[in-house]
Simulated assay, not measured.
Amino acid sequence: MWLAADDDTQIYILGTMHALPPGTDWDRGKVARAVDRADELVLELAPDQLAEAGKEFQQLAPRQVPLAMAERLPPAALAAYRAFEAGGGAFDADALDDWAVMVLMGQRAAEQAALSPAAGVEAGLTARFQAAGKPVAGLETAHSQLMLFETLDPATQRALLTRAAEDAGSAVADIRALTGAWRRGDTATLEALINEDVDAVPAARKAVITDRNRAWSHWILRRMASPGTVLVAVGAGHLVGKDGVPALLESEGLTVTRVQ
């Protein structure tokens, strides 16, 4: 967690995991104090938009013309994909866009790693703020978030899917390593794990990471003009590295301090 502050505004920026093992204790110490002090919570998606995500996925994910996975993936990647799919039932992937298959694979890997969105940071924060009668807002909509993937060019989507398939055998271990680094507050390991995935597909990194980080940092800079205390909670991968939100804010002349 980082803090950006001036004379009358405090904005805490908390790196989250969207899904966690049930019972994970994340809201202690300075995080708990920031939750208590904040007048409002800002997430990637407000609760009403999160509720819309499933419907948006169903509308955007289908292909116009089905395409067999055997025609999309090279032999080694296809074999790894088939083995992963066999561990939990078919995805009906032939009828889905490449990005949608990748999303479903990520969700299944999280389930197999015993992670649950209901135990994630966003779910806990939303419950806390709503119980206290404090507003909960979002930086994006469900539609705009999924359109980030839908509008990736076909070659980039195929590269992402191929990489996900090739790495399917280690997906659960990779998620556990990412979660472990987050629990330790190990930003160097977080950055290395995230970069290993996205740096191989630069167009995806720009659309899914860098451009969003810039938009969110600009939102924070604008919000600094209004007094109050805000907790901004977004995926931890958006807060690390030279194009993470804290680094981008510092490049704009704002003092940002890591506090947890």
Rank of each mutant, 00 (worst) to 15 (best):
R222D: 13
F84W: 04
M105K: 12
L239T: 12
P135Q: 10
T255V: 14
A93F: 06
T126F: 03
F91L: 15
G15H: 06
A168Q: 07
A159C: 11
A95P: 04
V259E: 13
L78N: 00
L96M: 09
R128M: 10
W2I: 07
L221C: 00
A46T: 01
R222A: 15
D25M: 12
V35D: 02
D97L: 14
A118V: 10
A79C: 07
L190F: 03
L249S: 13
R72M: 02
R214T: 12
V121M: 13
A100H: 11
D197F: 05
G89M: 01
R72G: 00
T257D: 14
R128V: 11
T255Q: 15
L148Q: 14
A177Y: 01
W182D: 12
K206S: 14
S226F: 10
E85H: 11
I220P: 07
Q130C: 06
P135F: 15
R108P: 11
W26L: 08
K206A: 10
L139G: 12
V256G: 13
A114L: 08
A207G: 05
L160T: 07
Y81D: 01
G241L: 07
A4L: 07
A83M: 03
D197N: 03
A118K: 15
M17F: 03
T179Y: 05
A34M: 06
A225Y: 00
T126R: 12
I11E: 02
D8N: 13
R223Q: 13
